[in-house]
Structures are given as C-alpha cells and as structure tokens.
C-alpha cells in the first residue's frame, strides 16, 4: 500500500537530468574552493593588518677595522636606553648562516662573506616606536646600523590579499549565475522534451503549479545530489592542501582552518544549491507553462 508514487513527468530519464548533477558537482567544487580561499585570505589579511608590528629587526653591518663584539655590546646598550624597546635578542651567527643557506644551499656560504649581525627587538605598544624612529635614534651614535620593518611589506601583502578576496568572491558569484543559467536551460529543455505529457496533464486539469512542482522537485533533488558530490570532492581537496601546508612551516602562511565554519559550509552549500535549483526551476517552469495554450 505504501508504494512510492512514481514521477508524473519522467524527468529522471532524460539527458538534462543525467548531466545536471555533474555540472552542479563541478560548480560546487569550484565555489567551495573559491569560498575557502576567501575565508583563508580574509583571516590572513586581518592578521597581517592587525600588525602594529611588534618586532623590528636591527642589522649591524660589519665595518672594517672595528671589533664586531664591541659594537654589538654598544648597540645592545643603546637599545636598552630606547623607550619602548621591551626585549633585545641577538640572533646567533649560526642562525643567520642557516637563513642564508636556505637560499644558497648548505655549505655554499663562503666563510669570508661579510654577514650582518641580526638583532630582534621586541617593541612595547604605546610608545609610537617604528623602524624609522628607531633607525634615527641608533644611527646618530652608531654607523652601519639599519632597521627592517615588516610592516610595509605586510601592508602590500594585505592589499594583494584583499584583491584576491574580491576576485574569489566574484568567482563564486559567477558560478552561482552559471548554476542558475544551467537550471533555466535544463528546465526549458525538460518542458520541451516532455511536452505531450504536460499537455495531457493540462487536459486532465492539472494547474501550472502542479506541473511546475514536478520540475521543482526534480531540480531540488539533482541540486542536492550535485551539491553533496561537489562538497565531498572539495573537502577531500582541502584536506589534501592542508596536509601539504602543514609540512611547510612558515609563520606567515595562513592555516587552512577546517573548524566550525567548515562544517557549516559542508551543510550550507548543498542546501543552497538545492534551493537555488528549486526556485529557479519553479520560476522557469511557471513562465514557460504560461506560454502553452
């Protein structure tokens, strides 16, 4: 008795119904990747921007005929007197060589290469101390000193990040529009393929809303199926990326968060595709049916 009522319009068997889920899967896949990109960039840009940079790097260039050790001590003393400097850490020369070896390769740093000494300086907030003012203070009493500021560089990075963010949002919107266009197209196709079934339904008194409901339900199912398929592939890809990113230990590289919002996205995307497909199919079907005699 509880036999399933079969679809009145045999939409499940036509070509559009077979290819629609795959188109949707592809769109959802691309949209989720783009969306993830947006979220990651957004978090990173915020972090980069928050920088009120709290560390500066002071470089002490070697000067002929002067003892590095003595200059280093003097520089530390000077730094100790500057208001706003909360901590001073002299980077060991071996660490500096390590850094350079990353570029030149291990063992390729000539022993006689004149290397600067690097001193990390932690800045306490509230003193308005930046690279420029610190350099001004130090250079007065010590030649061969320069101060590096990561801020300018981070600002440019943040600008780039924001542009990429907008681009990714545009991509998501375009994918959404493409999805809507696809549903409009397949619904029209379905109506013309099943024209005689629809004519019969009209003859036995089916209202347009009843016929449209057939297309609407089918589009929703296909949208849901495609959405789930797409999100499965997307999540697999993201986990893969995260794994790769996890092996590269750069503090500036943003992590790919797979936390709470990711679960929200997981549910929201197929539901959104299903809804978009459903509403689009309904409106398209109603408009097309109204043209029939």
């Amino acid at each position: 008795m509880a036999r399933r009522v079969p679809a009145v319009v045999p939409l499940g068997r036509d070509a559009p119904s077979r290819f629609l889920p795959w188109i949707f899967a592809l769109m959802v896949y691309l949209a989720v990747l783009a969306l993830t990109g947006v979220l990651i960039l957004h978090a990173a840009v915020e972090r980069w921007q928050r920088g009120e940079v709290d560390t500066l790097t002071v470089q002490l260039m070697p000067l002929d005929g002067e003892s590095e050790a003595a200059r280093l001590v003097k520089l530390q003393d000077l730094l100790g007197e500057v208001e706003g400097v909360s901590d001073v850490h002299v980077v060991a020369q071996s660490e500096t060589i390590d850094l350079i070896e990353r570029w030149l390769g291990a063992g390729n740093v000539p022993a006689d290469l004149p290397l600067p000494r690097l001193i990390d300086v932690a800045i306490a907030p509230g003193f308005g101390l930046d690279a420029e003012s610190l350099a001004f203070r130090l250079q007065a009493s010590m030649p061969g000193v320069s101060v590096d500021d990561a801020k300018l560089w981070l600002d440019r990075l943040a600008d780039l990040g924001r542009s990429l963010e907008l681009l990714a949002i545009a991509v998501v919107v375009l994918i959404g529009l493409a999805a809507v266009a696809t549903v409009i197209f397949t619904t029209r196709m379905g109506i013309s393929i099943h024209r005689n079934v629809i004519e019969l339904l009209h003859l036995i008194g089916a209202r347009d809303s009843y016929v449209a409901a057939q297309f609407q339900r089918q589009a929703m199912l296909l949208g849901l199926r495609g959405g789930v398929l797409g999100i499965v592939f997307a999540v697999a890809t993201l986990y893969g990326l995260r794994h790769v990113a996890g092996r590269l230990e750069t503090p500036l590289a943003p992590d790919i968060p797979v936390a709470h919002w990711a679960w929200g996205l997981l549910v929201a995307v197929p539901v959104a595709t299903a809804l978009i497909a459903m509403v689009t199919a309904r409106l398209t079907a109603l408009r097309e049916l109204a043209k029939m005699p």
Binding site: V8, V197, L200, L203, G205, A206, R207, D208
Partner: peptide
C-alpha cells in the same frame, strides 16, 4: 488559463488515441 484547468477537472475524457503515459 487557470480557470480552464479548473473547468477541465470536472470533465472526464476518453481520447480516441487513449493518450496513456508510457512510463506509468
């Protein structure tokens, strides 16, 4: 249009060519 649909629900038709839906 929609009023025609309502009127049609009060009419039963045996079509000369039956017009059965092949998939049902």
């Amino acid at each position: 249009r929609q009023e025609l649909m309502d009127l049609r629900r009060g009419i039963g038709v045996v079509f000369q060519d039956y017009r059965l839906l092949a998939h049902l």
